[in-house]
């Protein structure tokens, strides 16, 4: 009798194992995807760049960017290069989606050479970065160490995103851990560079972009006289794209084109230096990084040089 029950229990347990297995395993990835779509941070949304060889737990197929492809970076034939410094309201981007026909050329104009017309940007004069602030994630952190722009301030943290910038304080040199809302009101800056969005690529894009705009508005309020640079996300390598469903250059380009619309070219500018760091196909150059995402020191320097070459002097 006892043996019969042993067998019975074993069979029941084995079936329970397989039954829950089917449900449990299949459920986990879609749970993660659901959470991403509602914009909530899942606990595994730790900076997905923290280990080069690990696949992030937060990969989701839910957010494949269907937007701007790499090819659209190349200028279409009808972009006029006659834009001069007398750029007026013609260039001012309307936040609403009304001008759908002119949208495409305007976007490309913005992404071409990192800004509206080459003439707007020039090499930064001496001391330009003394009152500059760089805000961003791990890439900006690398910029603080290897970019050789020591006079600027940096508010950067591995894993920073528009969703956690207010809740997770970052360490600032000389100040220790400090919340962003406190930090941004402490000192007067002449220019604020922002590069965020890489950690949020797997989330709902609309929500990310609206949070991003809100962040820019907050910065404007705290620093009414500063120029704000909305930095285009740097690309990733072709290999990294294959590894990671959420992080693709198509997604990056789509995000970039959306945040480019935030700038008004009077005090907020869109800065895209991807052309300096990309290869011919619009991917990050393979030998510029060891993990597909973070630039090696030498290339961080190149990035910093590009920033210094493309300054807006009002």
């Amino acid at each position: 009798m006892k043996k019969f029950f042993s067998y019975l229990l074993t069979i029941i347990l084995t079936f329970a194992f397989f039954f829950t297995g089917a449900e449990y395993i299949i459920k986990i990835p879609s749970n993660v995807a659901e959470k991403k779509e509602s914009g909530e941070e899942t606990t595994s949304a730790q900076d997905i760049r923290s280990a080069p060889s690990t696949l992030p737990e937060s990969t989701t197929a839910a957010e494949t960017a269907a937007g701007v492809t790499v090819e659209s970076r190349i200028q279409p034939a009808d972009v006029s290069v006659t834009e001069t410094d007398e750029i007026t309201q013609a260039v001012t981007v309307t936040e609403t989606e009304s001008e759908t026909e002119t949208e495409a050329p305007e976007t490309s104009r913005k992404t071409l050479f990192g800004g509206v017309g080459r003439n707007k940007f020039r090499a930064a004069p001496e001391g330009y970065f003394n009152d500059a602030l760089f805000v961003g994630d791990s890439r900006t952190e690398a910029l603080s160490m290897y970019g050789n722009i020591p006079s600027a301030d940096y508010y950067a943290k591995v894993g920073m995103s528009v969703y956690n910038i207010y809740s997770d304080p970052a360490k600032v040199e000389g100040k220790g851990k400090i919340r962003f809302s406190e930090f941004i009101n402490q000192k007067k800056y002449g220019k604020v560079y922002v590069m965020l969005g890489l950690n949020e690529l797997g989330y709902d894009r609309k929500r990310t972009v609206s949070k991003y705009s809100a962040l820019i508005e907050d910065i404007k309020k705290a620093q009414p006289e500063a120029i704000i640079y909305i930095e285009a996300l740097l690309h990733v390598t072709a290999a990294e794209e294959k590894k990671n469903i959420a992080v693709t250059n198509a997604g990056i380009n789509d995000f970039n084109s959306k945040i480019a619309k935030i700038c008004d070219d009077e005090t907020t500018f869109y800065l895209d230096v991807n052309d300096v760091l990309d290869n011919a196909f619009g991917y990050l150059k393979d030998d510029s990084t060891n993990d597909g995402v973070h630039l090696k020191a030498k290339y961080v320097r190149q990035w910093a040089n590009a920033i210094q070459e493309r300054a807006v002097v009002l």
Partner: peptide
């Protein structure tokens, strides 16, 4: 501790 090694990879082995 593996994080330290990952940092080295990120920075680049010659830097």
């Amino acid at each position: 501790v593996g994080g330290i090694w990952n940092e080295c990879a990120k920075i680049g082995y010659e830097d």
